[in-house]
Simulated scan of single mutants.
Amino acid sequence: MSVNASPSPPRRPGADALARIGHPVPPADPADASPHRFPDGGTWRTEVPSVEGPEALAVVLEESARLDVPVHRVSQGSGVWMLTDAEITEMVDACAARAVELCLFTGPRGTWDTGAATRTDSGGAGPRARGHDALAGCVEDALRATAAGVRCLLVADEGVLWTLHRMRAAGVLPADTTLKASALVGPANPASYAVYEHLGADSLNVPSDLTLGHLTEIRRASRAPLDLYVEAPDDLGGFVRMYEAAELIRRGAPLYLKFGLSKSAGIYPYGAHLREHTLATARERVRRGRLVLDLLARHGADGGMSPLGSRLPGGLRRFPAPEGN
């Protein structure tokens, strides 16, 4: 796979066979294609989510080598505070050896807090940090993770995102730290997507059920990299969109293809009591990635992948920091 785009438009699934029997196939509209790219020129990268510790990471790296699945980033959902210092260091070292970006979730989240609103039908404030202490806990997680060598932080709160971005700009966090907006608070329209970019997000999960048209609308408002589950876990809808992968890239570039897993019980917060399930699902997520890559190849759409080891998003737009802060 190369960073150069495919020389011809991707083949539409079933187009040739349908044309032979006179069934009309809607042409792709060139105006729908995203004009944006990663700074390395690529249109897409890969991510394996729910990699909850060193053991799950080892399974992902072993299976990705066996199945020849390129991995740009792995992400963890339980949180920095659910890992020991030794576990974080082990994950940092293993990812560095394979030039894979490691992304860890920051701090307390409202869905696990003592507040009752998140357990109501409305969901309350969801995963956002409740009060100053929760915000400070996310800051503490960010400082601890980056001190151990982690350079990508997963965030589920707008205030935490803005705070960590200001810390990065002020040199409190390393300048090459990237901030990833969680699928738990994913923006669903062009205006909100652009706001997250301005608050400091370097890549943004969007809801897994956004239409292709929605992605085109977002790309008219922002060039910040987009994270999208091509298969979503059940608590995010359980959608399986493998057949749309080529079109998701065409409309959503620059885009991270996330290899999630439906019909699988949740594993957050992870512990040893969930070990066998977690390792089995980690292995299957990589296999799902192989299936997506095979589909892209069959459709002539496997060109344009960023080189392995690429991680930075390029220049993005930010709100100015308040005076005196």
Rank of each mutant, 00 (worst) to 15 (best):
E101R: 15
R144P: 06
F239V: 03
E244N: 13
S310V: 11
G171H: 11
A28S: 09
T211Q: 09
G303E: 02
R241S: 09
R288F: 11
A246R: 04
A282D: 02
D93T: 15
E63Y: 02
G300Q: 01
L248T: 14
A280H: 13
G149C: 00
R288G: 11
S310W: 02
P108M: 05
A170I: 07
A170S: 15
G159M: 05
M242K: 14
E217M: 13
E284T: 15
A181K: 06
P269L: 02
V155F: 04
V240Y: 01
R290M: 01
V172M: 15
G252N: 05
N189D: 15
A129P: 15
G300Y: 00
L67M: 01
S310H: 14
L57T: 02
L274A: 10
D294R: 06
M91D: 08
A272I: 12
F259P: 08
Y270N: 12
V100M: 03
P10S: 04
G149R: 10
L67I: 07
H72S: 03
P322V: 09
D68S: 05
D133E: 09
T114I: 07
T216V: 15
Y193L: 06
D16F: 08
L257I: 03
M1Q: 07
P26F: 07
R298F: 00
A265S: 14
A65I: 03
A175G: 14
P27T: 08
G213V: 09
A194Q: 00
G42E: 02
A253R: 04
A142M: 06
G124S: 04
R37F: 00
A142K: 12
A272R: 13
W44Q: 08
T118V: 12
T120C: 04
E247S: 11
S306P: 05
C103T: 13
G107Y: 06
A65P: 00
M1W: 08
Q76N: 14
D157Q: 12
G303I: 01
G237R: 01
A33V: 09
G123F: 00
R98T: 04
G77T: 08
V150L: 01
L316P: 05
V59W: 00
R45K: 10
D302V: 06
G22P: 00
T281E: 03
S222P: 00
L184V: 05
T84W: 14
E323D: 11
P70A: 10
L173G: 12
G315C: 08
V139H: 13
P10E: 03
A147V: 09
G126P: 04
M91Y: 13
G237C: 05
G124N: 03
I267M: 15
G271E: 09
R73M: 12
A181M: 01
L204Q: 15
C152M: 07
W44C: 07
L83T: 14
W44M: 05
D113C: 09
S6H: 10
G131P: 00
E87F: 14
G252H: 08
I249T: 09
G266W: 06
